[in-house]
């Protein structure tokens, strides 16, 4: 530990996601490992999607925050395995998403190892409206403002909202 505001883990865990800034990297579940020795920090993160453009920003933000907290060098590493799924988003993260008007993903649990089943109908999964709680919502678009979100609409409060889709 160096003169600073917290342990390397605490600093890294509090860095916010550039595209879902209500979440920290720890809430999002992309922070895999933080080690520190003599002020030198190594952070391992995992991408949400292969082409997630926020990944470089996460790395830059981690570097900036840790250097500002007094650590002398920061090495940000990328781990592809095990692959991130939305199940890695913490309970705290899900609550924060809901409070920000974004419906959190359902938990899917362990995936079967065999062939991936074809899904021929739009998902009928019940997604609660983050504003009024109604379950009468429907998907407007399978892809939203970022790769990780779909667009939905609530039939009761008539508001559109974003949904972090399950992968």
């Amino acid at each position: 530990m160096v003169a600073g505001t917290g342990t390397a883990f605490e600093v890294a865990a509090s860095v916010r996601d550039p595209e879902l800034p209500v979440l920290t990297l720890a809430d999002l579940g992309v922070l895999r490992d933080v080690t520190e020795e003599d002020g030198r920090v190594s952070v391992t993160i995992t991408p949400t999607y292969s082409g997630c453009p926020a990944l470089d920003e996460m790395g830059a933000d981690l570097r900036r925050s840790l250097l500002r907290a007094g650590f002398t060098s920061v090495d940000v590493r990328l781990s592809l395995s095990p692959a991130w799924t939305t199940d890695w988003i913490t309970e705290d993260g899900r609550r924060k998403l809901r409070e920000a008007g974004i419906a959190p993903p359902s938990r899917l649990g362990p995936r079967p190892a065999g062939p991936v089943p074809l899904n021929l109908t739009p998902p009928s999964r019940r997604v609660a409206c983050p504003r009024c709680g109604s379950h009468r919502t429907s998907e407007v678009s399978r892809f939203g403002s970022t790769a990780c979100k779909a667009l939905r609409r609530c039939a009761d409060c008539a508001e559109p909202f974003e949904h972090v889709k399950e992968i």
């Binding site: 550039p18 595209e19 391992t44 453009p53 926020a54 990944l55 470089d56 920003e57 790395g59 830059a60 933000d61 900036r64 090495d75 940000v76 590493r77 990328l78 781990s79 592809l80 395995s81």
Partner: peptide
């Protein structure tokens, strides 16, 4: 407070730190 944007401008090496 910093220059901060949601979309990376300088992409880093794609496999840095991967086994």
């Amino acid at each position: 407070e910093d220059t901060h944007w949601a979309f990376g401008t300088g992409f880093s090496e794609a496999l840095a730190g991967v086994d």
